[in-house]
């Protein structure tokens, strides 16, 4: 690094007046802290010799870098403190949200009586479709969409499902199996006429090796 040709170690950063831009620029070879900060944000590219060759700027840049390091350390320690907290705040969030927001449309179930209105909510059906996928190993179901007029009995409906499959699995076989299970679930819990279940493999999940695995709790 050519920058280290001007080792500013030990020199103190110029303690300029916060309001005096002229003094700031005079102390920083015509630059400002804001410019230097942006320069660092850009990874010091493209190289600007008027900054790189100025010992004053170098001192300021080092200070900015040090500030950034301390910031990262602060964030790390804040995060580890927050992560170590007990779980009650998670519970309190989950206890305070309502499923009502996601009930979706009402899917009719037949009954001979004209005064009967029997339905299963779209939210309940999506839930059981996810469950169906979750009971299979090595596949994670994402979004499930019921396409078509589910509120009118007899209208053909298409189900669109996004999945992540673990690397190494036989994708067509997994998809077929999931399709069969979902079809059976739809038969059991709805009276929908299912035209197709389209499964899109969005992602392959690559098992992180032990070293890269996320830290255990």
């Amino acid at each position: 690094m050519t920058r280290s040709e001007h080792p500013p170690t030990g020199e103190r950063f110029v303690a300029f007046d916060l309001n005096d831009t002229d003094r700031e620029q005079a102390g920083l070879h015509g630059h400002t802290i804001e410019e230097l900060s942006d320069y660092l944000d850009r990874g010091r590219t493209p190289a600007d010799p008027s900054i790189d060759d100025s010992p004053e700027c170098e001192i300021a840049l080092r200070s900015l870098e040090r500030l950034r390091r301390v910031q990262l350390n602060l964030l790390d320690s804040d995060l580890s403190r927050e992560s170590a907290r007990d779980d009650s705040w998670v519970s309190s969030i989950l206890d305070n949200i309502s499923r009502e927001a996601h009930r979706g449309r009402e899917i009719p179930l037949a009954h001979p009586s004209p005064t009967a209105r029997l339905v299963v909510t779209e939210g309940a059906v999506r839930g059981i479709l996810r469950e169906t996928g979750d009971r299979m190993a090595n596949i994670i179901v994402g979004r499930c969409v019921l396409v078509g007029d589910v509120e009118v009995p007899g209208m053909p409906v298409t189900v669109q499902v996004d999945v992540t499959i673990f690397q190494g699995e036989n994708i067509p076989m997994m998809a077929d199996r999931l399709r069969q299970l979902m079809f059976a679930a739809l038969q059991q819990y709805t009276e929908l006429v299912v035209a197709a279940i389209d499964i899109t493999v969005r992602d392959l999940y690559v098992e992180p090796d032990a070293a890269a695995a996320p830290k255990g709790e």
């Binding site: 499923r99 005064t115 209105r117 339905v119 059981i128």
Partner: peptide, 12 residues
């Protein structure tokens, strides 16, 4: 009786 509505809001 004008209507009896039954809603399945959750399965399993």
């Amino acid at each position: 009786i004008a209507q009896i509505a039954v809603i399945v809001a959750r399965i399993g």
